[in-house]
């Protein structure tokens, strides 16, 4: 399994994501935002957390229009996998690959703490090693994680089972407690919490590791 982690100026979770993917068995290549092509044979493109381009204009907006993101969109349109965590989720919504948008947290504060998430009944390879209804603890670290979709889109996401994670105790005001959603073909996942920061015992927990392991085993079978 070959993965690419995109690096923007201001990315700061790129290496954590690289390590988490490598420990799950992926070959990982780091890709600079000015590159126009993804490495050949890439199965998964991962967009890391951080503050790409200083969050100027809107979080993720400038990154979403960088040269590599045109290749990212083409990769997803070909049926490729893409994972966006935190700022990566914001980038994926800005590209239009995922629905909705991330607003300023309702309490206007930057929130950095472990939170309880509920794994929803969402059929996607990312959740292979979790069970629906399971509660996991994964950290969040964001100022703009307040997920928004309008009522019609929310009903669609719920109807299609595309909500992957919800917050047990909503920290940021997100519509319907949503912490992560998948694309229509279920191969693109965006989430605000950081599973790569809860992926080995020294992190204080390993609840995030199952996401990378489960994805790898599902992709090996695909």
């Amino acid at each position: 399994m070959k993965a690419a982690v995109i690096v923007f100026p201001g990315s700061n979770c790129d290496r954590d994501l690289q390590v988490a993917l490598e420990r799950a068995g992926a070959d990982v290549e780091m890709v600079w935002h000015k590159d126009t092509e993804l490495p050949s044979g890439v199965d998964l493109v991962a967009v890391p957390g951080g503050f790409s381009f200083g969050d100027y204009l809107r979080c993720g907006a400038i990154a979403a229009n960088s040269p590599i993101c045109r290749s990212l969109v083409a990769h997803v349109e070909r049926g490729g996998y893409a994972l966006g965590i935190c700022n990566g989720f914001q980038v994926l919504t800005e590209t239009g690959l995922l629905p909705g948008a991330l607003r300023r947290n309702a309490n206007l504060k930057y929130i950095c703490k472990p939170v309880a998430l509920r794994v929803e009944a969402c059929e996607t390879d990312y959740l292979t090693d979790y069970t629906a209804g399971q509660e996991v603890t994964v950290p969040i670290a964001h100022h703009d994680g307040n997920y928004y979709v309008d009522d019609a889109k929310l009903a669609q996401l719920q109807g299609e089972g595309r909500i992957a994670f919800t917050y047990v105790d909503n920290p940021n005001g997100s519509v319907a407690d949503i912490a992560g959603v998948v694309s229509k073909n279920r191969r693109v996942l965006g989430m605000m919490p950081h599973p790569e920061r809860m992926a080995e015992p020294s992190h204080g927990g390993t609840d995030g590791k199952a996401m990378f392991d489960g994805l790898m085993s599902a992709m090996a079978l695909a």
């Binding site: 204009l57 907006a61 400038i62 948008a101 607003r103 979709v149």
Partner: peptide, 9 residues
């Protein structure tokens, strides 16, 4: 449409 506004919100 392309950059300055996010027309979702």
């Amino acid at each position: 449409e392309k950059l300055l506004a996010n027309t979702v919100i």
